[in-house]
């Protein structure tokens, strides 16, 4: 790929400190494809909050790891967010970001019928990373993540949703669209392209 030579349609820079990705029903294939095509030396930490079974603690991260180019980890409470890492919200906990760039987990009640809730991950990340955050919201059957996207936009971060017509269930991205202006509406392949272009700003 020689994307760096073509003029980017995205206004990117190397100031981003983190990417948060939210997904629910219909997002697993998309996430898998993203992880599979990610450059091995991708720098920006990725924090994923995906709706998953509450009572199944093991298996999910392993399933994602089978095809992923990089190792995916479920962070522990107070763990430092590091460059080049990919994190997944653990089952039955909310995952948040705390000032000082550490993770924080919580067993509070469900938000939007979800624990982990995408809104919590996105909002806490927006609070800490401000305009240096990219939020990506994928296919899903409820409105979790919409308020989180709004908060990211308010703080000056970059917002991306999966092209609704491509989603298995488009409630999640369209809810975000109703809540806030979205910078880019992209297909899965375009998201891959976006991340690759972002990568070139960091190498």
């Amino acid at each position: 790929m020689n994307i760096s030579l073509t003029k980017s349609k995205y206004n990117l820079n190397n100031q981003y400190k983190a990417i948060v990705i939210g997904g629910s029903a219909g997002s697993f294939q998309v996430i898998s494809k993203i992880l599979q095509n990610l450059p091995e030396d991708f720098q920006v930490p990725i924090i994923m909050c995906l709706h998953r079974l509450k009572d199944v603690r093991n298996g999910f991260v392993e399933a994602l790891n089978i095809k992923s180019a990089k190792l995916i980890e479920e962070p522990e409470d107070k763990e430092q967010i590091r460059k080049g890492k990919i994190y997944l919200a653990p089952a039955n906990y909310h995952l948040g970001v705390e000032l000082g760039n550490t993770f924080t987990i919580s067993t509070e009640g469900m938000f939007n019928n979800s624990r982990p809730a995408i809104d919590i991950t996105f909002m806490t990340a927006a609070y800490v990373f401000r305009n240096k955050l990219i939020g990506i919201l994928l296919s899903g059957a409820n409105k979790d993540g919409a308020l989180g996207m709004k908060r990211i936009a308010e703080k000056g971060g970059l917002t991306i949703i999966q092209e609704p017509s491509e989603c298995l269930i488009d409630t999640m991205p369209t809810s975000a669209l109703k809540e806030t202006a979205i910078d880019y509406t992209l297909t899965t392949d375009e998201i891959l392209d976006f991340l690759n272009q972002l990568h070139y700003h960091y190498v």
Binding site: G96, V97, E98, L99, T104, S106, E108, I120, T124, Y127
Partner: peptide
């Protein structure tokens, strides 16, 4: 912890 206390 700040973020959860804030939510509460």
């Amino acid at each position: 912890a700040m973020s959860s206390f804030k939510r509460r």
